[in-house]
């Protein structure tokens, strides 16, 4: 795919992904938006009124803790996913810079990304507590925590690993220039 096509596709795809839940929220204003798993649990009790879960989780008692833990999961996942993506993008950039195809990246970009990350991390939960148009279900609180954490970690780690990858790309190019044929053989063997 060409650069332009990729960019347009990304924007359209993200717009659809954001629009789908909003359509759900607008079409069903009176729904509670609880979890499908708790609806499943209700159905089990309806089918078999005597059913009791025969094992309960050892330590988790409050829903609030589990909401924060969902945020933690989003944070971990966003950090891992975007650090690898940042590394790949940065390495490509480093290679291009070494080949004099692109101007060097400014150090200001790194600071900007990290700042955006930290800002997202603080702004989104604050917005949620300020705006909250109706008491949302625990599931929606989970979504806010996980999404804000994932976006914030995404920005921050993308920036950190972009520059790491760029260094790697530059170093790679220097090595290949020095002893290209030897390096290729070594790579082929290993």
């Amino acid at each position: 795919m060409k650069n332009r096509t990729t960019a347009i596709f990304t924007v359209v795809a993200l717009a659809v992904v954001i629009a789908l839940p909003i359509v759900g929220l607008v079409l069903r204003p009176s729904s509670a938006f609880g979890g499908a798993d708790s609806a499943g649990q209700a159905a089990i009790i309806q089918i078999n009124p005597n059913y009791k879960p025969w094992f309960n989780n050892v330590w988790m008692q409050s829903t609030r803790t589990s909401e924060y833990m969902f945020g933690f999961q989003g944070l971990l996942g966003g950090a891992i996913l975007f650090s690898t993506l940042g590394f790949f993008v940065g390495r490509t950039r480093g290679r291009a810079e070494a080949a004099n195809e692109q101007a060097p990246a400014s150090a200001g970009a790194k600071a900007a990304y990290v700042l955006i990350g930290i800002a997202t991390f603080t702004v989104i939960p604050v917005l949620y507590f300020v705006v909250g148009y109706k008491p949302p279900s625990s599931e929606i609180i989970c979504l806010f925590f996980a999404l804000s954490a994932a976006i914030a970690a995404g920005f921050t780690f993308f920036a950190l690993f972009f520059f790491r990858g760029r260094r790697k790309g530059l170093k790679e190019a220097v090595q290949t220039c020095a002893v290209p044929s030897m390096l290729r053989t070594v790579e082929g063997v290993s």
């Binding site: 789908l20 839940p21 359509v23 759900g24 929220l25 079409l27 069903r28 729904s31 509670a32 938006f33 609880g34 979890g35 499908a36 609806a39 969902f70 945020g71 999961q73 989003g74 971990l76 996942g77 966003g78 950090a79 891992i80 996913l81 975007f82 650090s83 690898t84 993506l85 279900s137 599931e139 929606i140 989970c142 979504l143 996980a146 999404l147 994932a150």
Partner: peptide
């Protein structure tokens, strides 16, 4: 990338048209 993607997506409880998440 694959593991992180799996981690992020399974942490996002998204509201659906059916009225639950």
């Amino acid at each position: 990338s694959a593991g992180g993607f799996c981690f992020v997506l399974s942490s996002l409880k998204i509201p659906s048209v059916s009225g639950s998440c």
